[in-house]
């Protein structure tokens, strides 16, 4: 078993044999557990890049890849990964060539997820670190209870728009919605119960669309610097959208922040 034979020293990236740097997994007929077992075995044997083809609904891909040595892997997914892709992701990079389902980046700790398509509901749920880039749109309850702590500040960038309950109970982190296809934000209940973090929306949002705990304000220079950094990365990852950073940034953005860090203090305090 790989776990037993790999020694500490052999795990240094530069020493890994070329031959095992890029591995391929055919996920046809593989169950969730089998697929994740293979990923873990490959990582422990020193593989740095894995392509998984024919993915069709297997869940939790990329979870359970924690090692005390902080081994890192790049995973490319062809097909449609199942729910809770990259749950608890520990610093790895996952690229999906297609759409993703519900629960992408559930409680993700660090690393990066790139979705070349759309994501389903509860994208970035309880995410506490790392970055997620979704090219198209996403479903309900995006960034539900996303949080941050000291140096860890998760970032989620979505190319188009989200459905209702974006940033519900959000406690930290940065969410950016670029509304690239001019559909305007139709979501309601944005930031309901929000008590930390920041949401940037390109375009316009009505006060009736956001929760009572949310303040809508224009962006300032510090916000522009944040947007500049992450929109650059977004555009780098999705050249196919055919839009430049300047084109995207040169338009109106609004900032949503919580009015209070304890929105329910009056409700629950005795």
């Amino acid at each position: 078993m790989a776990r037993a034979v790999v020694s500490e020293s052999s795990l240094e990236a530069d020493q890994v044999d070329e031959r095992i740097k890029a591995a391929l997994i055919d996920a046809t007929d593989l169950e969730t557990k089998e697929l994740n077992d293979r990923l873990r075995d490959l990582m422990l044997s020193g593989v740095k890049k894995v392509k998984i083809i024919n993915v069709c609904g297997q869940r939790y891909i990329g979870t359970r890849l924690y090692t005390p040595e902080r081994l890192k892997m790049e995973i490319e997914i062809f097909g449609t990964p199942g729910n809770d892709l990259a749950a608890f992701l520990y610093g790895h990079k996952i690229t999906v060539h297609g759409n993703a389902q519900d629960g992408v980046g559930n409680t993700m700790d660090g690393g990066e997820i790139i979705v070349e398509g759309r994501a389903g509901d509860v994208l970035g749920f309880s995410m506490r670190g790392g970055e997620i880039y979704v090219r198209d749109n996403c479903g309900y309850r995006t960034a539900l209870h996303m949080k941050e702590y000291e140096g860890k500040r998760p970032v989620l960038v979505v190319g188009s728009s989200s459905q209702d309950f974006l940033g519900e109970y959000m406690a930290g982190g940065i969410v950016i919605l670029l509304d690239l296809y001019g559909q305007t934000h139709k979501a309601n209940f944005i930031g309901t119960g929000m008590h930390g973090g920041v949401i940037y929306l390109r375009g316009h949002v009505e006060p009736s669309q956001v929760g009572g705990q949310v303040e809508i304000s224009p962006i300032d220079d510090a916000d522009r610097a944040v947007l500049d950094r992450y929109v650059s990365r977004f555009v780098e990852r999705f050249p196919e959208i055919g839009k430049s950073k300047e084109e995207i940034l040169n338009s109106q953005f609004v900032r949503l922040t919580p009015k209070s860090k304890r929105p329910y203090s009056k409700l629950y305090a005795y």
């Binding site: 069709c56 097909g79 990964p81 199942g82 729910n83 389902q101």
Partner: peptide
Amino acid sequence: EEASIRLISPQLDRVWT
């Protein structure tokens, strides 16, 4: 789940929730 649709029809014209 979308994956089940893709299993029997890998190419789709439109997908939405």
